[in-house]
Simulated scan of single mutants.
Amino acid sequence: MNKCSVCGHERNDRDMKCPECGSFYSKIAEIIAEQEAREEMQTFRGRCKKILNSDDVKQEALSELKLMWAGLTKKGVFALFVIFVFVFALVVSVL
């Protein structure tokens, strides 16, 4: 069951026209909305929403971290290592 984009009335997938407001349902609009939702989940903001909306935030954050780590190249891992060492050296030098 989806909702009408104009009035929000619940509808069946077979319906072509909203019984409440009379507007026609557009399959193209639904496909675009689904695509935008998928693209949103690939952004940092979408991933943060996914983590915060899950039942087990810690487990979801760990799974997202594992996905991110698996997608890094050797250059990316080396860059993160250099950044970590640099920040550690700065902190140690201040203390």
Results as ranks from 00 to 15, higher is better:
Thr73Gly: 04
Met68Ala: 11
Arg14Glu: 11
Asp15His: 05
Ile51Asp: 04
Arg14Lys: 10
Glu64Phe: 05
Gly76Asn: 08
Glu34Lys: 13
Gln35Pro: 00
Lys75Met: 06
Glu20Trp: 00
Glu39Tyr: 15
Ile28His: 10
Thr73His: 01
Lys27Asn: 06
Glu20Ile: 01
Lys58Ile: 08
Phe24Leu: 14
Ala37Gln: 13
Leu72Gln: 06
Ile83Glu: 08
Pro19Phe: 05
Glu64Leu: 06
Gly22Asn: 04
Ser26Asn: 12
Arg11Ser: 06
Val85Thr: 13
Met68Arg: 05
Asn2Arg: 06
Cys4Gln: 01
Cys48Met: 15
Arg45His: 10
His9Asp: 01
Val87Met: 10
Ile83Arg: 03
Asp15Ala: 13
Ser63Ala: 12
Met1Pro: 01
Val94Arg: 13
Ile32Arg: 12
Glu30Lys: 07
Lys50Asn: 12
Gly22Ser: 04
Glu10Gln: 03
Glu39Ala: 13
Val92Tyr: 14
Glu10Asn: 03
Ala33Arg: 10
Arg11Thr: 10
Glu39Gln: 15
Phe44Ala: 06
Lys49Met: 07
Glu34Asn: 12
Glu39Asn: 14
Val77Ser: 02
Leu52Met: 15
Ile32Asn: 07
Glu34Pro: 00
Leu67Glu: 14
Ala29Arg: 06
Glu20Lys: 11
Ala89Asn: 08
Asp56Ser: 13
Asp13His: 03
Lys49Ala: 05
Val77Leu: 11
Lys49Val: 04
Ile28Asp: 12
Glu64Trp: 01
Arg38Cys: 05
Gln35Ile: 12
Ala33Phe: 05
Val87Asn: 02
Arg11Lys: 05
Glu10Lys: 03
Ala79Ile: 05
Asp56Met: 03
